[in-house]
Design a protein around this nucleic acid. Sequence first.
DNA 1: ACCCAGGGTCATA
DNA 2: TATGACCATGGG
Length: 223
Amino acid sequence: MNASTTSLRAMYDRLLRRYGPQHWWPANSAFEVVAGAILTQNTAWTNVEYALDNLKREGLLSAKKILAAHPRRLGALLRPAGYYNLKARRLRAVSRWWMDNGGHTGLGKWDTHVLRESLLQVNGVGPETADAVLLYVFDRPVFVVDAYARRILARWGMIGGEESYDEIRAGFEAKFRRPAAAYNQYHALIVRHAKEACRKTPRCEACCVRGRCAFHRAGATRG
DNA sequence: ACCCAGGGTCATA
DNA sequence: TATGACCATGGG
């Protein structure tokens, strides 16, 4: 991570001033965050909401109910989120993990590193999903490196863009040591900024690594 | 008709 | 270790 450009603290202050607190993760329970983290993999959040609404309506938004549900039925409810067969399996896997380890109460007592390694053993949970759960479910001070964060850090000149997940994460955390609340806020602000700015300006400063980003390519929008 | 979205796994070389 | 195929829907 290249610190020669803008400081992470300065960018954080600017984003917070511009957008205000973001109140993430949108959910009514800890397990809903876990489910959302799986469902949002490479998927627009609006589609995830449809699937989460389906689960709620059917009373299936808990680890226990998901494990008890027929895989066929679970898949049908997840359909709007895409990859629904895959995600049905992943949701089951993470539900099993959740239940076997005492849910929010039991897992909450674990050391952060141990918790992360355990999450990574679950099929369908990779580094980003694991970090999202650590941060938004268990309030651990970790930086979630999603596609937006990668693009923005590249746009800010802090990374080249080709670095590994763990490299970016470690670099960020080394230069921005804060309580979990700040990492929570930062990640949410990045997503907010990337989405918002990218849809309103011809050459946004949020996600365009060089020149126009994919969203602004000819034909994508009339920007 | 194309492009994209809050990734991860698995097979192959 | 590192690429590539695969997973699939809804919205711009």
